[in-house]
């Protein structure tokens, strides 16, 4: 009996760990790809959905919503079809903040404060990969905030790029999974039906691959509900955004 109780407690403990892991947002690649045209002009490929959702900041000293995931990469491909080629390594790039909405900021390249209009941010020579911190300091859910930037080559190999705009919006808080033990052999997981594009996944440990749970959940009011059998030493669950 003692053994059974210990097993159930350990199982529930594992589930609780998993629920915390479930709060992490899935991250998607958002890259501002920089190249040049055959005519020698700086070109940008902003092949991602806008506005970019910024999650709640996890950076100490940076409030609101923030991310360092939106990067500037120099292209490592020559794409003649799209007139998009690799940059010269003789160039030395900076980006310049041209304009911004109130409430949105980009931190400077030393992390000491927000960039001012006209200020430059170090990007460097080709090939480069830099991750500025984009920050909605005082944002309202559902609002969109714009930053306008341009790229400059200090060595004069290329003229300034055309200004380009990035838009950001505060990410809604991620949905949470809750768990209720039904009996020693069963527990029920539940999460909101408003969590569009979020799928339940499970894993036998936090270092193995996550797999989608294919069991179809029942709908109970505003929640999805799925009863699981406690038949493993431990199991982890999370909601993963598609």
């Amino acid at each position: 009996m003692y053994l059974v109780r210990t097993c159930v407690c350990w199982w529930i403990f594992s589930i609780i760990l998993a629920l915390r892991a479930a709060e992490a947002l899935a991250h998607e690649e958002v890259v501002i790809l920089v190249g040049r045209s055959a005519a020698g002009e700086i070109k940008l490929d902003l092949d991602f959905a806008q506005p970019i959702e910024l999650p709640a900041s996890v950076f100490p000293g940076i409030s609101g919503h923030a991310t360092g995931e939106v990067a500037l990469h120099s292209t490592i491909l020559d794409d003649a079809t799209n007139d998009f080629f690799q940059l010269s390594n003789a160039a030395d790039f900076r980006f310049i903040l041209v304009a911004k909405d109130s409430g949105v900021e980009v931190w400077n390249d030393t992390g000491s404060g927000y960039m001012g209009i006209g200020e430059t941010f170090y990007v460097g020579a080709f090939p480069f990969d830099t991750h500025p911190v984009w920050n909605i300091v005082n944002g309202t859910q559902g609002n969109v905030y714009w930053l306008t930037l341009k790229l400059r080559d200090l060595n004069g190999v290329y003229p300034d790029s055309a200004p380009f705009a990035l838009s950001f919006t505060p990410s809604p808080p991620p949905p949470k999974v809750s768990i209720t033990q039904v009996d020693p052999q069963h527990a029920t997981l539940s999460w909101t039906t408003n969590a569009a594009n979020w799928n339940l996944q499970s894993a036998i440990s936090l270092t193995t691959n996550w797999e989608s749970v294919t069991n179809i959940p029942a709908t109970a009011g505003a929640d999805f509900s799925l009863t699981i059998t406690l038949d493993r030493p431990q199991q982890f669950f999370r909601l993963h955004r598609e």
């Binding site: 991250h27 958002v30 996890v58 360092g68 990067a71 990469h73 990969d129």
Partner: peptide, 18 residues
């Protein structure tokens, strides 16, 4: 010198951020 990114972007899954 520098080179382009080879592995997962923006970071390895589960890498500690912040």
């Amino acid at each position: 010198g520098t080179a382009g990114v080879a592995t997962t972007t923006p970071y390895f899954a589960g890498f500690p951020i912040g």
